[in-house]
Structures are given as structure tokens and as C-alpha cells.
Design a protein around this nucleic acid. Structure first.
Lengths: 326, 326
DNA sequence: ACTCCTTGTTTATGGTGTAAACAAATTTAT
DNA sequence: ATAAATTTGTTTACACCATAAACAAGGAGT
């Protein structure tokens, strides 16, 4: 979903509006989002319609439009609501989803999770010392996957212009912290987190689809493929495929998530090791590339001079080149 | 899409039916699929409807149902049609898509590509000697990505029960051949190809979505994020994110595809090297794990005894454990 | 000439998101 | 207290969508 219209209103809703403020006749954003999540969890995102949500709450479908701009915005809110789940908490039951959306400035008592909190989608702890980044990043990936399992529609809904809410950003912050101090450049850190995040989403998407179809058609993946004899008859003309098949390549398949995650993390580790080698070498200015004095103590300098520091600042002010995404 | 109903009919259509057989009043499967691809290419998959396809051909929407079971089957056919494109060929123009579906057994003159053909979606050449697997696999990934660029709906439509057609299988065969002879186990070969394939699809999905939204809303990704000042105001409380931002992590972002592909291939290379080390060591029986005699010459044995070979055979006969997917 | 089959059309059903007009109730201003 | 304004939910309407079912017309086989 894309929040195509009025993303600023979505930001407002996500970050500054109290979701539990019930209107005169009892409708509230929190209730709407919660009902929508319940429907999507139980029957899939394609079963989610404005009418369904409204009627579940005892209203008409159109009543929602007084609180929410439209369906795409509702989905945006659903995403962040769900991303705010405590990792250990129960999930899809009626009203279990924590959708408190109290103001960010006001330290509300029933406040939401903050970056670094054990309750954020990132979970506990940052990078646990040098070399600990891998365990932490892997754990983050697994928690994210578990979340996608609990809400099978989530992975299929994350768009490129998804407006990030507090819970989404908290998770991203945690993941970034995970690879901080590895010697990766800032851009590489962002890329690493994005890569792992999209990997998880991709795999979760498959897994969710398999589960959904198996439930709907009541025929397992294995049975379905086993019944495709008319297809297998055509496959004997492909030598490599046949060889792989006959060598038992499909008897005990690798788990796609486990296999993929290991490969991706291995690939990242290769990069980290590369950067690690150069960490102690001469640093270069981020702007002009000139060598930077290493005083040996304190925070290492990023710029060779005040001039370059200022140039970097001006460049930043002109706006980002790509979106901030999880 | 899932081909939920009557997949055997889809197999029939993909592998054995001639698509160019025009009926009395001029409708044919080939024409239908071609028109559908044109619409989806030009206006996105969400603009594709049975009515649109029918009317583009001068018929009603219902007329299609005499040739195609329903929309999901049509999408399945579209996939394989598009997967059959010559890599170098032109693309989205009217009628350029090669959707010849002549029989597989009969060597039709305007026949489709075969595994290993330079014209298959896999492209030319298998693994180019030892160590060449990486270049070949990378090239395959890039071709697949290019295909997804030409048909932005493709990546978002590949499901787990997608019925593979001849072009799809040819591409898969090629990719498998790419990693044959690396010392990977058959199951690992399948997993590697699946990982890379899904990575490409995932990235292509994002790229397609960005392009689609940018075209529809006429505001670039950069401009859109630049306009989210009300959001940025909230972000200063996240220390790592702020640090990354201030260090210029978003000034020159890594290209997600290039970065990710390198990581994934690096990760695979780690695995390949692991297997390579053990290649010359003592092999173990695939079934019972016992050591296998290495005669030193000829094809290395996979089983320790005739008994284990037979057991493996019976296990294979009972059907596959997972689907064959690209 | 008669029947059967193929193919395209018409009609109908139940679903979707949401714009616009409307009605009631509460809040605010006077 | 009274009137105006605002909020909030409802009704109606529109333009789509996939597709089931009945129907009509033409060709092929006998």
C-alpha cells in the first residue's frame, strides 16, 4: 500500500494523534485498526474491506471514512500497529494488538515502545560487542519473520512509500544499531539492513502464500506437486533438472529461509571482514577523500577540515537521495 | 497467481496445445495472452481485466472464458509467454512477444526455445569451467532482472503453485546447470537457484513499484521523501538513525540490487568453497552416511551399497517433498 | 435434414472503493 | 437560552470487477 494521498495526514495519525479517543458513538481509530487487523489475520488481506471492518464494529462501511482517509491509509496504520507488538506477547486474539497511538512528545502512561526498548519490534539489545553483530542481526531477522507469520498479510503490503510510524522506525533503529561499529560505512549499514529486511519479507511472503493456499484448497503443497504427473512427463528432456531430481535433490530440500539467511549473513560477513581489515588503516575524509589525522584517542574524525564538515552539512540539508525504509 | 482450479488443464495449455489455432471468429489463446501482456505492460497488472482484454480484441469479456478457464489461468499463461522472450529481442511493442505454444514433441518450425538455446530466458552457455559458476549465475540474475523490468508485473505474480511452462523450466534448467559441478549437493543447487531467483524477484518488485508510483503520481521518490518534513521532525530521537543520517548514509545510497547481489553471491561462494574443500575428501553415502569407497577414477559413487541405492530410489518414487520452483 | 459441438453474447449476481447528499447530535458562540 | 457551526454516522449512487447461467448462431458429422 502506498498512502498515495495525503501522507502528511498519515504522519499526523501515526505520530501525534491519540488512537484511543473514542468519538460520540464509540468509533475510534484504534478500534478500526484493531478490527481490520483481526479480519486480515483471520481471513487474509483480500478479505479485508471497508464494509467488513465497519460492520464488525456495528457500523456501516462508510462510517470509517470520517476517521480514516481511505483503505490505503488504513493499511498503513495496520502495519505500524502490528509492528508494535511485544515479541513475546500473544497475538491475533480479539483486541490483543497494541495499537496505542498516544502523542510522541507527551510521555503518556500507556505510552508506546521507544527505540531500544525490549518491547520494540527489534527486541532486546544492540550489537553485543565486536563480532556480535551477526547473532543480533540474525535474531532480528527471526523476530521479524515470526511477526510476519503471525500477520501473514504484512510482508505483502510493505511498499516503497510506506509511511513509517514509531514502531516501524524503532525496529529499523534497532537493526541499524545491530551493525553499528562493524566498520561498515553508513550507506552500507543502511543497505545491509535493507537487504536482510527484504529477504525476510520475501521469504515470509512465500511462506504465507503457501499456508494460505493450503488452508483454502485443503491440499498440501506436497500433494499438489505430487499430483502434477502430466507435468513431470514433460520434464525428462531437461538434463540437469533430471540429474538433480534423480540424485535426490528434492527428497530433503533445504529450508529456503534457513539456507538463504545463512548465505546472506555469510555474504555480509565477507564485507564486514573486508572493512575490518581497513579499519585501522588511514581514514579518509568523507567529502574530499583526503587523509584525516588520527589522534588515536576520542571519537575518530569524519572530515578533514571544518570546510568539508560544512559542505557535508549543506549537502544533507538539500534532502535525502533515497527513502528511509525498513 | 495460483492456478487454483484445474492445473492439469493449464499444463495441457502450456505444453501441448497450439496457441496460434484461431477459432472461427478469430479468437485464439495466443492472441488473448498477447493482448493481456500488452495491457499489463502498458498500464500495470491492476489494469488488467477480462473485459479489457476482450474488448481490445473486439469481443466481450466473457468471450475469453471459452478459451481460458479464468483470470488466474490467463496470468499463468502470460508468465510463461513472457519468460520465452529472446534476451536480445525487442519487447513490449504490439505483438512482439513470442507466445508460440506449439507442441513440445513436434519440432515446429516457429518452435519455442529449448534448454541451452541462446534464446531461452537463461541465455547462452552453462557453467564456464570451474569457478565460472559465479559469472554465469550473476549473468542469469541480471537477465532475469532485465526481463522483470520489461514486464513490471512479472515479479509480483510468481506464486508457489505457479504451473511452470516450457520457458520457465528452460530458464530453471539453465540456472541449475550454472551451479552444476561446483561440489554443491543437489538440494543445495536447488536452494541456490531459488535464493537468487527470489532475490531478483524481490528487488524487481520494489523497482517496479517505484517506477509505477512515480509515473502515476508524477512525483519522484526523492521529491516524495524530501517532502516528508513532518516525519523527519520525529526522527531525531533515534540515535543510530540520526548518526547514520548525519554521517551521510543517505547521501549516496548503495544500489540495492547491486549491493544485494554481491552479498548473496559472496555468501554462495563461501558455501561453494566449503564444499570444494571436502570434494577430495572421503565421501559419505547419501542415504546412511557411511563412507563410500573412492576408486579414484570414473564417476564418484553416491551410495555405499546397492541396498542404499535402492532405498533412495524408492524414496524418490514416493513423490517430491517440495515444489519445483524457479 | 437432423443433431451435436464449438464459440461468442446477453443477462444477472454479488462483490469492491468511495463520492455526495443527508440527518442527527453535540459543541460553541452569541 | 438560543442559534450557528462542527462532528459523525447513514443512505444512496456510481463505476468497476470476476464469473455463473442461459441463450443464439454457425459448422461438422451423420
Amino acid at each position: 500500500m502506498t498512502a498515495q494521498e495525503d501522507p502528511d495526514r498519515t504522519v499526523e495519525l501515526l505520530w501525534r494523534e491519540p488512537w484511543d479517543a473514542t468519538s460520540r458513538q464509540g468509533l475510534s481509530i484504534g478500534a478500526i485498526v484493531r478490527a481490520a487487523v483481526e479480519i486480515a489475520d483471520a481471513e487474509g488481506i483480500e478479505a479485508l474491506s471497508m464494509r467488513r471492518v465497519g460492520e464488525r464494529l456495528g457500523f456501516t462501511g462508510m462510517s470509517l471514512y470520517r476517521h480514516v482517509r481511505g483503505k490505503t491509509q488504513l493499511v498503513d496504520l495496520m502495519c505500524d500497529a502490528v509492528l508494535g507488538e511485544t515479541v513475546t506477547g500473544t497475538v491475533t486474539g480479539a483486541g490483543t494488538v497494541t495499537v496505542t497511538g498516544a502523542g510522541a512528545e507527551t510521555e503518556s502512561p500507556a505510552g508506546r515502545s521507544r527505540p531500544g526498548d525490549p518491547g520494540d519490534p527489534g527486541g532486546s539489545g544492540g550489537s553485543a560487542g565486536p563480532g556480535g553483530w551477526r547473532e543480533a542481526l540474525e535474531a532480528w531477522a527471526r523476530r521479524y519473520r515470526a511477526l510476519c507469520h503471525r500477520h501473514p498479510w504484512l510482508a505483502g503490503v510493505h511498499g516503497t512509500r510506506y509511511v513509517p510510524g514509531p514502531n516501524s522506525v524503532a525496529g529499523f533503529e534497532h537493526a541499524l544499531a545491530t551493525v553499528a561499529g562493524t566498520g561498515l560505512s553508513p550507506a552500507e549499514m543502511v543497505a545491509v539492513v535493507g537487504l536482510v529486511g527484504r529477504f525476510v519479507e520475501g521469504e515470509a511472503l512465500r511462506e504465507a502464500e503457501v499456508a494460505r493456499i493450503e488452508r483454502r484448497t485443503e491440499v498440501s503443497e506436497q500433494d499438489w506437486w505430487g499430483a502434477r504427473e502430466s507435468l513431470f512427463a514433460e520434464l525428462s528432456r531437461y538434463p540437469t533438472l533430471t540429474a538433480v531430481w534423480e540424485a535426490g535433490g528434492y527428497d530433503e530440500p533445504e529450508d529456503p529461509f534457513e539456507f538463504g539467511l545463512r548465505r546472506v549473513l555469510d555474504g555480509i560477513e565477507v564485507l564486514v571482514r573486508q572493512r575490518d581489515e581497513r579499519r585501522d588503516e588511514i581514514a579518509s575524509c568523507v567529502v574530499c577523500g583526503a587523509t584525516v589525522d588520527r589522534s588515536g584517542t576520542g571519537r575518530p574524525r569524519a572530515y578533514c577540515s571544518r570546510g568539508c564538515q560544512q559542505r557535508a552539512y549543506r549537502r544533507r540539508r538539500s534532502g535525502p537521495q533515497g527513502g528511509i525504509r525498513q
